[in-house]
Amino acid sequence: MMAIEHEQLERSGLTRYVPPKGDFEGFRDEDHYREKLKEWGLSSAKEAKREFLFKERNYQRVVKIKGFETYGKSEEFNTLVIEFQDGNLSCIHPAFLKEMQASSFGKESMLQVEEKDFSTAEQSAVTQGKEDTPEPKPVAKSESKKTKATKPKKEKEPKIELPAEKVHFTASVKQFALTYNPFNEENDEVVVLENVQIIQEPPIELGLAWCSHSKTLKKFELAPGDMLEFDGKVAKKKLAKGKDVEEEFLVDAAVLYKVNNPSKIVKKDKQQ
Rank of each mutant, 00 (worst) to 15 (best):
N260Y: 15
D117Y: 10
K241M: 06
S263L: 09
S212A: 14
A254I: 08
P19G: 07
R61E: 15
F27N: 04
S43Q: 10
V167W: 05
E155P: 02
G41P: 01
T179Y: 04
M2W: 09
K55V: 13
S263G: 06
V139H: 00
R16W: 06
A177S: 09
K137N: 06
Q200V: 06
S142Y: 02
E69D: 13
P20Q: 05
D132Y: 11
L162F: 03
E143H: 00
I92N: 02
L256I: 03
K151W: 10
K49W: 10
Q272A: 12
S124F: 12
D269E: 15
I198A: 03
R16T: 13
M2I: 15
S12Q: 12
L14F: 07
T79V: 06
E143D: 05
Y180I: 07
T133V: 15
C91E: 14
E248M: 10
E201I: 15
M227K: 10
C91N: 12
P158L: 05
A95H: 00
E157M: 07
V126M: 07
D269Y: 13
R16G: 00
L178A: 07
M227P: 00
V259L: 11
S103Q: 07
A235S: 15
E69T: 13
K151T: 14
Q175F: 02
A95V: 12
N58K: 05
N88Y: 04
N195I: 03
L250D: 06
L9K: 10
L256R: 01
R16D: 08
V62R: 11
P134A: 09
F68V: 05
G207T: 04
D188Y: 04
K66T: 15
P182F: 12
K236C: 07
R50T: 15
K148G: 00
V251A: 03
I65N: 04
V191I: 11
L53P: 00
K243M: 11
V196I: 08
N260S: 13
E114Y: 15
K174N: 05
A3S: 13
E246D: 13
E135Q: 12
K151G: 03
K21C: 01
G22T: 06
T15S: 09
D86N: 13
V18F: 13
D31M: 13
A209S: 10
I198S: 01
T15Y: 05
